[in-house]
Amino acid sequence: MPQIKPTRSELIKLQRKIKLSKTGYNILKKKRDGLVMNLFGMVKDAKEAQETLEESYEVANRYLGMTIAFEGEINVASCALIKKGTPQFQLESKNIMGVQVPKISELSFKKGINDRGYSILSTSSKIDETVEEYEKVLEYVAKAVEAESTLKKVLNEIEVTKRRVNALESKIIPKLESQKKFIDFRLEELERENKFRLKMIKDKKSKKSS
């Protein structure tokens, strides 16, 4: 039995701890269930995002192959070197049931034909079409990254919450309750001893007086 003082003040403290632990346990259970419900939608989104990305990349890759065959590798490579501006994005965070998940915003890479850096006269439309397809790929990359990162974070949070719920359910609350039981038992014992002692004293007194 754990070393705990069997006093009324300890009993009161324990009762408070048990109440708090049980409240926490119920809240964490609800959080776990809520996260799992949300997870189904997230897995679906991540799967769709990845499928769209794959399809888009296949198309873009085909366009690139055709462009290289038509324009020549050196021409395409030189257009790639001339290209102005770097695609950028902002990484923010949003809250899903207390979990901070990434949000990609302000994706800036789409440029008009005249702003791409290379001359539209010395290149064919194939390069422009390839660039447009790759722009779509980059957009889907951002969506897929957001969906997958959200999924990873929520999975981690579900794991942590599950562990806490299990720890409360199988270790902490049973331990506190057994300590409470021990103190209750000892206090009852002390009361019985006191009652017996008082009875003995009373009997002695009554014998003396008689």
Binding site: A60, N61, G65, V76, P87, G117, T130, L138
Partner: peptide, 22 residues
Amino acid sequence: MEFGVIGDEQFVMGFKLLGIKK
């Protein structure tokens, strides 16, 4: 923040056309 791409020549070229420097 920026994008980074690592791969063989053709893989990287498509993204370089978008201006990805890294």
